[in-house]
Design a protein around this nucleic acid. Sequence first.
DNA 1: CAACGCGTTAAGAGCGCTCTCTCGACTTTT
DNA 2: AAAAGTCGAGAGAGCGCTCTTAACGCGTTG
Lengths: 333, 333
Amino acid sequence: MARLTLEDVGALAGVSRSTVSRVINNAASVRPEVRARVEAVISQTGYVPNAAARSLVSNRTGVIGLVIPSHVSNLFEDPYFARLIQGVTSGAKQISSTLTLFLFESEEEEREVSPRVVESGFLDGVIVTATRPGNSLMRKIAATDLPLVAIGRPGIDGIPYVDVDNRAGAFRAARFLREKNYVRCGFIGGPENTSTGEDRLAGFIDGLAEFGTALPNNLRAFGDFSEGSGYTAMSELLDHSPDAVFAASDGMALGAIRRIQDAGLSIPQDIAVIGFDGFTKAETAQPPLTTLRQPVSATGSKAVEMLHQILRDGSDSVQPEILPVELIHRASA
Amino acid sequence: MARLTLEDVGALAGVSRSTVSRVINNAASVRPEVRARVEAVISQTGYVPNAAARSLVSNRTGVIGLVIPSHVSNLFEDPYFARLIQGVTSGAKQISSTLTLFLFESEEEEREVSPRVVESGFLDGVIVTATRPGNSLMRKIAATDLPLVAIGRPGIDGIPYVDVDNRAGAFRAARFLREKNYVRCGFIGGPENTSTGEDRLAGFIDGLAEFGTALPNNLRAFGDFSEGSGYTAMSELLDHSPDAVFAASDGMALGAIRRIQDAGLSIPQDIAVIGFDGFTKAETAQPPLTTLRQPVSATGSKAVEMLHQILRDGSDSVQPEILPVELIHRASA
DNA sequence: CAACGCGTTAAGAGCGCTCTCTCGACTTTT
DNA sequence: AAAAGTCGAGAGAGCGCTCTTAACGCGTTG
């Protein structure tokens, strides 16, 4: 059977196309009895409005984009993105939108696809994640009038964003370690040119400073959030005998644990370890990892919520949101 | 500035709307000199055709859906899906389509969203993954005329699908263990009502049978592919003293390794372990995991390719594709 | 030189929907 | 009881595009 149109449904219900349209859009000015008749026909026939026709005239597609830039493509296996996508999906469901994913694997791809993404009117708005300050993709999107929400502090003013309180979390980690009287606290950070990397470093330094402690350069090492990079970074730190380490991701913390154990040292007796993320793999680690749990899924749904608000009320109405992180105390520190 | 239309571009180039349309769609019958003039205007103005208007008339949206049913939502953090999504995305890029994600968290959601997914004409086709035989969502989609490709053997006849050769992989694992003279080979399987679960079990049994060995019931245990479930399943097997174990996922293999080590036994001396997946976490395990590497990303892009072929040539033209898996020999077996 | 064919372009219709405008029927007001 | 307002529903326009059809110039042919 060919697909039904509004006109067909109207004919079947003995009303005009306009009336059926009104019923579907829950508009007023339809007698309850007529409405019921139309609804009956709709549910019997299984009529579903044509999305393209609808958005052609309404300029709304019910589609939001989630943009994941190329520089994280190798990190995409990190559960972070899975959770984020789950959060965004569930947020999208709330506002009866669907999610389209823009996953770039090279900067070249970013350049090519961008006009199509942005200009075709195919999207109601986009969420850009894993930004690095000055990311060109974000800058380009921001330059258009496509509604935009960033996940993580964007490098550009005036862009609404959701972030977790990386700074407070790292601060908390430092305080926790100092209160337990660890005196040589090391740090394994994420990439320095990311807001997440910067904030977790800054928060940790501040937290130590609260106790009059500094973070010497030789107790800092950096990775890319992955377990392998944590292992390598820990090797560096080991030369300077820390008695505790705060890693800016659970993955790196796990790498660090492995490195420490490979050195024949035990956790937390010789070196305490704290991670950041709160993923399941932190629970089942040996020893279970003390970590700062960030609400990843909530970040995703919050971003959708903000986007929805912008779509409704305009972008002036929204403020950045900073979601709290929580210290989970387990055996590793 | 308001968005340009074909008409505007035509006016700027001194031609009609139709000609501009022809240029954009690379149709014949446009004089090179006119084409150049139009293209110049397009690139100067940054004109991008309106997606909704386009698909209203052409009945093509350039959007394909990836459906991930509810029963795996708790497994979504498994790198499998990340890789699959990467594969699908890159396949979609090849055919200049975009990917929309349908991620369900409950069966109720599956029911509600399904008409919208399927009937609105919003999708050119869908890829349904992680199917269980008789999955109602798949059945429902198959009943419509929306082009469909399954990932993993679907329970329904006539549906084109891509799968990895689970059976041959498991067969290979059995042969590998028997050739190394392990005599009490245990099995940790996935959910029994999944095609993946079934095939890996059947292949393993066949492989053992090749050497005249049976797989007794007390050397079989089942999990849900997750690490925790592997740990639990291994506990059961331990009571029946296997000297080798084949786990139907790397996650479960890692859980099994942990369980074996917790029992004070060593790998592979006391018990050999083989996994299935070939994910990075298998490499960095202690000991590194021997496993069957399946081409997940390729599975995703292959599925898109098949869908594209169906879109072009009709669904009669495609045959199921079974992608090979590869034994990666490491220290655990 | 009229008739024809061909390549190139314009004009027009129409995809399925939303939204404004209008009109008719009915209710309220004075 | 007539004028005014209110509500319900239909007719029509038009969103921006593709595709069919028609027209137009030009060279070729009998």
